[in-house]
Design a protein around this nucleic acid. Structure first.
Lengths: 232, 232
DNA sequence: ACTGTAATGGACGAACTAGTACGTTCCTAG
DNA sequence: CTAGGAACGTACTAGTTCGTCCATTACAGT
């Protein structure tokens, strides 16, 4: 039942014996593989729908190891969430648009967010699943609740700079702007299946990506620069 | 274990004995109550997470009746989906913005969509759940796949009229515009829990509703009327 | 009243599923 | 080389969960 019988080398917690080929026992590799398979299975079937036995069958180790390293199904799920969120946050903090003028900075930020969502569809599924469960697992994780989000700070700076230059007319607040950008990037991935079934067009299909990316950037910029305003 | 032991009268398929008080046997009422409870439970726990036994405990009838009327869990779930989608589609087809000028028509459509999402959060959860399962149940329902969506036709008309008058500058297509509007309305409900946990603000809280409604309308109008354009 | 049938209830079973008891093997420190 | 613990595998269990069997009751038409 094992898959991928070919030799391979994944991350190892023990830097000793680096190039020595294959190890029979490698806690780091086993842990990593469990997390990898678990993420795929949870994303595919939801929390309750994912089966621990099925995960075990998809791994090069046994179910016993899942419980050895993670204790129970919920802790495994939380570990998957933590890993996924941490990766996302790492990528997010690498964004640097300080060298750009406010309008192009916010547009670039929106487009990078777009690309990031497009490239991490499993993560989006996990977030959707977590929302169905009212974020009860996310709230149990100190690692995640403490992990602040620097992106609103960045947006706040861009908005201030844009208002100072007179480019932005709205009094919009950073959290709201971030929410709008996320909305536009998230939906076309999260709802691609129902939307596709009802409208005959998979919104996450590659042929729409470039057009949608530009639309998202345009919408955000158009809103902030205040066209079509119904301001008093 | 029964709840609500008080007498009541819900919809009945048999119009005979209308005011005669209580009926012991009423297929219509039983069916309706099963669907009602099932919708709540599926929305709360997801498809796999919802328990048929739990539903039965929440009803004034027994689990046997669920299987008597719906056959199995999946068919019950599909019936819930069909009911929810049909209700939404009915409300949607009642929208009439033909008396408005294009700009205000699209803004009103966006705001009505916003209010509709805000008022039907259980439906949004069902859609999220269905997307986790790649819309496999939705696709099994002829009633749903045949049910075309008139909203894109409406948007198409508005876009044409707006372009004819020179109000709209974009070449945006109706399905894309509908997707953007849906994105903005859907996300703040579907992701309220994770977003709220990470940013300390529940985006679906009542105190943000009016501001967000206006933001959504503004974004759509601003985009279509083409402010901040990076057009070639 | 009477009878066929739709509607209903309760108890049960087979299969599944999270989690564990216990024994074994590999790796490394000393 | 050799403990001793970390890493691992097999087989199992206890509880859950979907679905069904069979008996029973209310209702409508005659």
């Amino acid at each position: 039942m094992r898959r991928n019988p070919s030799p391979w080398s994944l991350m190892s917690t023990q830097p000793v014996t680096p190039e020595s080929g294959e190890r029979r026992r490698d806690a780091g590799r086993t842990r990593a593989e469990i997390l990898e398979v678990a993420q795929r299975e949870f994303a595919r079937h939801g929390y309750a729908g994912a089966r621990v036995d099925d995960m075990a069958a998809l791994m090069r180790t046994t179910k016993r190891m899942i419980y050895y390293y993670f204790g129970n199904k919920e802790k495994l799920y939380i570990a998957v969430l933590e890993k996924a969120y941490t990766e996302v946050r790492t990528a997010e903090s690498a964004i640097d648009v300080r060298h750009l003028a406010p309008v192009e900075a916010i547009r670039t930020l929106a487009e990078l967010t777009f690309d990031h969502h497009d490239a991490h569809q499993d993560f989006i599924k996990l977030v959707s699943i977590e929302n169905i469960h009212r974020a009860e697992h996310l709230r149990k994780s100190e690692a995640l609740t403490n992990l602040g989000t620097p992106v609103t700070g960045l947006i706040s700076q861009i908005l201030d700079a844009g208002r100072a230059r007179g480019d932005f007319t709205t009094s919009a607040d950073a959290v709201d702007v971030h929410m709008m950008i996320s909305s536009l990037c998230f939906f076309r991935i999260s709802n691609r299946h129902t939307f596709g079934a009802l409208f005959g067009r998979d919104p996450a299909a590659p042929e729409h990506r470039d057009r949608h990316r530009e639309m998202v950037g345009e919408m955000v910029v158009a809103y902030l620069t205040g066209a079509g305003a119904r301001h008093m």
